[in-house]
């Protein structure tokens, strides 16, 4: 290096690196899965009551939105109702040089909601896939009345959408599947429409009935209950996750540790989900 300009630039570089390294933020932000938003808000509320100095801000938006926010640095914790995708891990590698940290924090069953007046009570995973992909369009083909099936589902940014697509539909959703913003909206729509069907977290099924699900034709029909979800006999069971950029420290670590403690897991049950153990 020959010039003074370059020396100055190098010194500036070192000083700025050291200076910016000490920039820290105290507030913990949590963003992502709409399925987890009520649970996460409850966690934050109780945790902040117990730790008056802590500030936890929780917002929804969908698992994809939360993970995108984690990658672009606008959230500390991403809530996701599906496992992180390899393409998202590649983005974490490129930006933060880590693989991210995956923390399963609860279990959930994905219910298939039916209107209470619908005589159909059980469906196989294959039938559900054919219904949501548009191959079966009439209830009579699955033992119901002669009426067209009305489909309700989530937006593509939702982890619930992704999980249901990967594990049940296994192809594209039918173009006639109406997307609604949030599980509560789906429950509400199914409640009003006798010939409709929707899916979402088991905790939301109020005013509708859960469809019993069979793994295949020969398997028994299983309803999503606390027992069947905890022991994984209900076929559409999933973990709910929190994702971090790197190993947690400080306030984030304290919050995560508390969520995984018996106290945090007790709130999982109170909110209608299922604890890890």
């Amino acid at each position: 290096m020959k010039t003074n300009k370059l020396r100055i630039a190098a010194i500036l570089l070192v000083v700025m690196t050291i200076g910016f390294s000490f920039t820290t933020l105290n507030k913990v932000t949590v963003k992502g899965s709409d399925t987890m938003v009520i649970l996460s808000q409850k966690w934050a509320e109780v945790y902040m009551k117990k730790n008056p100095g802590a500030s936890i801000q929780v917002t929804g938006g969908g698992s994809g939105v939360g993970l995108a926010a984690l990658i672009n640095g606008s959230t500390d914790i991403a809530n996701s109702s599906r496992p992180i995708k390899s393409s998202e891990v590649e983005k974490l590698k490129a930006r933060y040089n880590t693989l991210g940290v995956e923390i399963p924090c609860a279990k959930d069953g994905l219910s298939v909601y039916l209107n209470r007046a619908n005589p159909v009570t059980a469906l196989t995973i294959k039938q559900l896939g054919q219904i949501f992909s548009g191959k079966i369009t009439n209830w009579k083909d699955v033992g119901g009345q002669d009426a067209p099936i009305k489909l309700y589902g989530r937006e593509s940014s939702s982890g619930t959408f992704g999980f249901f697509k990967d594990n049940v539909v296994k192809t594209d959703f039918s173009a006639s599947c109406q997307t609604l913003p949030g599980t509560a909206a789906i429950v509400n729509a199914v409640k009003k429409d006798k010939y409709s069907i929707g899916y979402g977290g088991a905790a939301y099924a109020e005013g509708v009935k859960d469809c019993a699900v069979k793994k295949d034709d020969k398997s028994p029909a299983i309803l999503p209950t606390a027992a069947t979800i905890k022991n994984h006999t209900y076929p559409i069971t999933r973990y709910l996750y929190m994702y971090l950029k790197s190993k947690p420290t400080g306030e984030i670590k304290a919050f995560v540790d508390w969520i995984l403690s018996s106290e945090g897991q007790k709130l999982v049950v109170e909110t209608g989900y299922f604890p890890l153990k």
Partner: peptide
Amino acid sequence: VKNVGKVNEV
């Protein structure tokens, strides 16, 4: 490559 804090990388 090392990330230093949330916004720096050397």
